[in-house]
Simulated assay, not measured.
Amino acid sequence: MNHDRFRHLLGYIDSHLDEVLSLDVLAGKAAYSPFHFHRRFAALTGMGVHRYVQLSRFKRAAWQAAFRPDVSVTEMALQAGYESAEGFSRAFRQRLGASPAAFRGQPDWARWARTWQDLDQVRRFAMPLTHDHDDVRIIDFPETAVACLPHRGAPELIGETIRRFIAWRKENRLPPSRSSTWNIVYDDPDETPPDAYRMDLCCTCAEVAPNEQGVIAATIGAGRCAVLRHTGSDAQLGDSVRFLYGEWLSASGETPRDAPLFFKRVVFFPDVPVHEAVTEIYLPLAGVS
Rank of each mutant, 00 (worst) to 15 (best):
I281N: 13
A91C: 04
R152Y: 08
A226Q: 01
A217T: 03
G287T: 12
W116C: 07
L249N: 02
A113F: 02
V272M: 06
P34S: 01
S72T: 15
F35L: 12
E280L: 12
R124V: 04
A102T: 07
A154V: 08
Q106M: 09
R173N: 08
H133A: 14
R173I: 00
I158A: 12
N211L: 00
G246R: 13
G253D: 10
W248P: 00
D195R: 14
R39E: 01
G28A: 15
R163P: 02
A80V: 03
W116N: 12
E212R: 10
A80R: 01
R242G: 06
Y245W: 11
A61H: 00
N2F: 07
G287F: 11
S240M: 06
K59D: 05
M127V: 15
I13T: 01
G81F: 12
Y32I: 07
Y282G: 07
R265P: 03
L244K: 01
Q54S: 10
I13F: 02
W182M: 13
L149D: 03
P270G: 05
H38T: 04
E254A: 15
F263Y: 15
V73L: 03
R198V: 07
S240G: 14
F58G: 01
T45H: 00
M127T: 15
S89L: 11
A147H: 08
P193T: 10
A113Q: 11
A259S: 12
C205E: 09
W182H: 15
R104N: 00
L249V: 04
P69A: 00
L23W: 00
V274W: 08
S250I: 03
L10E: 02
G81L: 10
Y82H: 15
R51Y: 05
Y245T: 04
E75A: 14
